[in-house]
Design a protein around this nucleic acid. Structure first.
Lengths: 220, 220
DNA sequence: AAGTTGCTGACAGAAAACTTACAATATGAT
DNA sequence: ATCATATTGTAAGTTTTCTGTCAGCAACTT
């Protein structure tokens, strides 16, 4: 699992440093001093979560939030405000923020809220590199293209993706996907691997499943 | 879904501003300084909810409420009062208010109550995509066409609609629709699904219920 | 009694999973 | 390099599993 990417819109350099030290090593963070650079980066790569300070010099944080919500309705957004009054809290939530933290905030608190936000977002849909695993649809997409997997294929590919980088032995795979009752030698696993590879190719991708001869399979 | 329209009767300008900032962008609001303009607007367009301050200069809020109830028995009404005593609370509810908030009120609280009021109003009829679920009639319409569902069919389709996009397993569905006491394998679920599909087709729609083999069903 | 509604069991059809057989490929020894 | 061997890939066919549908029955309503 890659580190979650978090975009932060914050102009105060002191607070920027605070974010850096707070999230260092835990999340990949990118800090933007203004809305424009944030949106530019957003177009290139969508983060897992955004933290927006509403007291910015050039632009109102609420405007950023509103504009962001036009592009992405589900991205978890945490609003940070110096105003600790109820009004901005309410306004933030109304504009589509998922959570609200007021300055001065405790780093612990912020981390907890980020975690909660990421968990909410990851509830159904998780991204791993090129893959998007949708637990509710029982399907996986490759570069946005749904693969249309059967349950076996879904379970199998999900396993490989979630433990990508790791070579899983045939036995491990059997145990995880079929349960303990797997019966010795069979080509069943290879079959399904072939099916999945076909479907990924049909979606326009190159085979991402590596065969590790004598051991099992791996997704990088 | 359009924004809900809320009429507010309030003469204090400070409080008027508070309403404006609180509900901005979330609801369409119109604020009236007196009862007459409120009723005039009411005749033209009925709101989804009304908030009435009972401490008005020219007219008693209770009178407005009483008169309103002659025209509309179900409109959710929230009474706002500076008197936080129990008497006005009871009086308000007796006159047909659905809820009661006393000044000075927390904006959060007010928003929560408005939401609750709207939810109550929407209790009977809710829209999800092409479907309109009517709790009171125990029926669901597809593109305005009533389907004429039986209770089981209603519960089943309602479940699928309310959690649309999500694949529900047969077991989940059984638990939700039949209760915990569902007995193993049976074709009952498929039967009802088939019935619902027939009825939707009869109403001129394409089958919106997706079978997820080995798992359950889903409405997109 | 007649009509609804909900359920069951039987069966058919379809989809998925698996098996078999053989081809293709990688690996290591020669 | 070449070959032998072990291992994996794949096509075709078979089996199993799952869903859809039908007919019929029981419970309930009107």
């Amino acid at each position: 699992m890659d580190k979650a990417l978090i975009y932060i819109v914050e102009d105060d350099e002191g607070i920027q440093e605070l974010y850096e030290s707070a999230f260092e090593d835990v999340y990949d963070i990118r800090i933007f001093g203004d809305g424009e650079s944030f949106f530019k980066a957003f177009e290139e790569k969508r983060p897992s979560l955004a933290i927006i300070d509403i007291m910015l010099p050039d632009i109102d944080g609420y405007t950023i939030l509103t504009r962001l919500r036009e592009k992405d309705e589900v991205l978890p957004v945490i609003i940070v405000s110096a105003k600790s009054d109820e009004m901005s809290f309410v306004k933030g939530l109304n504009k589509g923020a998922d959570d609200y933290v007021s300055k001065p905030f405790s780093v612990m608190e912020l981390i907890a809220r980020v975690k909660a936000g990421l968990r909410r977002a990851n509830l159904y849909v998780r991204r791993h590199n090129e893959f998007t695993v949708n637990e509710k649809l029982y399907d996986i997409a490759f570069r946005g293209q749904k693969l249309g997997l059967t349950i076996k294929e879904f379970k199998l590919l999900k396993l490989l993706i979630e433990r990508s980088g790791e070579t899983l032995t045939r036995e491990e795979i059997f145990k995880a996907v079929w349960g303990d009752d797997f019966m010795g030698e069979t080509r069943a696993l290879d079959m399904h691997i072939a099916q999945i590879r076909d479907k990924i190719r049909a979606a326009g991708g190159e085979n991402p499943i590596v065969t590790v001869r004598g051991v099992g399979y791996r997704v990088d």
